[in-house]
Simulated assay, not measured.
Amino acid sequence: MKPTADHNERIAKMTFASVYPHYITKVEKKDRTVQELLQVIEWLTGFNEKDLQNLIEEKATFETFFQKANLNPNAHLIKGVICGYRIEEIENKLTREVRYLDKLVDELAKGRKMEKILRT
Results as ranks from 00 to 15, higher is better:
Ile90Trp: 06
Leu77Gly: 03
Leu38Cys: 02
Trp43Asp: 05
Phe47Ser: 06
Asp102Trp: 05
Thr25Arg: 15
Glu49Ser: 14
Phe47Asn: 10
Ala69Asn: 06
His7Pro: 00
Thr33Lys: 10
Lys93Gly: 02
Arg96Ser: 04
Asn48Gln: 06
Ala12Asn: 07
Leu55Asn: 01
Asp102Arg: 01
Thr33Asp: 10
Leu52Gln: 02
Gln39Asn: 10
Asn74Ala: 13
Gln39Gly: 12
Arg96Pro: 04
Ile11His: 01
Val81Thr: 14
Tyr20Arg: 05
Val105Ala: 12
Val27Gln: 12
Pro73Val: 12
Thr120Val: 11
Glu89Thr: 13
Glu28Arg: 13
Thr45Ser: 10
Glu28Pro: 01
Lys93Ala: 13
Ala109Ser: 15
Leu118Asp: 01
Lys116Gly: 00
Thr95Pro: 00
Lys103Tyr: 02
Asn48Cys: 11
Arg99Tyr: 15
Ala12Met: 04
Glu107Met: 15
Asn74Cys: 03
Ala5Val: 10
Thr45Gln: 11
Leu52Tyr: 00
Pro21Met: 08
Asn54His: 07
Lys59Ile: 00
Thr25Tyr: 12
Val81Met: 11
Thr25Met: 14
Tyr20Ala: 08
Glu57Pro: 00
Met14Tyr: 02
Met14Lys: 14
Ile117Tyr: 07
Met14Cys: 07
Asp51Leu: 04
Thr64Lys: 15
Tyr100Pro: 09
Glu91Ile: 07
Glu9Lys: 12
Cys83Pro: 00
Thr61His: 06
Asn72Phe: 07
Gly46Ala: 09
Val19Ala: 12
Glu63Val: 01
Gln39Thr: 15
His76Arg: 05
Val81Pro: 00
Lys93Ser: 10
Ile56Thr: 08
Ile56His: 01
